[in-house]
Amino acid sequence: MFANLILFLGITLMYSTPLVFGALGGVISERSGVTNIGIEGMMVVGAIAAAAGSYFTGNPWIGFLVAGACGALVALLHAVASVSFAADQTVSGVAINMLAPGMAIFACKRLFDGAAMSPIAPKLPKILGENGLAGTPFASLNVNVTTVLALLFTAIMWFVLYKTKWGLRVRAVGEHPAAADTLGIDVYKVRYVCVLLSGMLAGFGGASMTIGIISQFTQTAISGHGFIAMAAVIFGKWTPFGAYGACLLFGFTQALVIMLGGGDFVVPSQILSMLPYAMTIIVLILFVGRSVAPKADGVPYVKGSR
């Protein structure tokens, strides 16, 4: 029983990790006033980039960084559309979600002789080494280093948002861009930086799936994780730690799917697989009215208009 609980906790942490990165990406982007529905697509690109980077260099850390860079590159498209061209941010995000999986699989087939999945790539290490805690009941708490990184990034983002001048500016731009503009803050620059960071974080999220949990890229490695991460942003009231907590909850439901699916349980696996998605809707029903988005979230800023 106890071992099972520990296992449960371990799986929860494991599966919440990609979501945490995605959600942090959502937080930083939306806090600056840009809705980023494209998180999903950026995670997919990060997923292939990480697998490929890790496979070809043999160094998963390089894969991780490449994933961040590629995620940011995709985010640049969203930034150009939604910041410079004041495009409909939902449409732009949707376009990215169409474009990104195409690019990812195209790249995968090109790199790996027409295969839609990558070969097994080296994974990022676990925090206590491959066999840390092996043999003890706590073995499943020897989580992947990305899990720790996710928590670390959450803390850093909290500190930057609330304790530094850049955070103050980001929050001001997301609430009242015209006010920030009149004080000499470059609204466009702040938003560009935040959207790029958002893409980088989403890229890390994809990486923590392909070289943290599984060890290769597959077409379904990222399936709706970006959107669950967005729900976590809302549930977490647009704060880093709030989003982190929400992701734990969603990770928990995934763990539930795995734990229940493993045994001779009466519920068919297909029905169990619906759980994280159904859970997201339920959580939104319970919490959406109670959290308030940044005032200028999703509203393009056009200089000179209020």
């Binding site: 498209l77 376009a95 474009l99 999986p101 195409g102 690019m103």
Partner: peptide, 12 residues
């Protein structure tokens, strides 16, 4: 997937 990419670009 080049077609998906093309469609994505068109929508973008």
């Amino acid at each position: 997937e080049i077609i998906n990419i093309m469609i994505g670009i068109i929508v973008f």
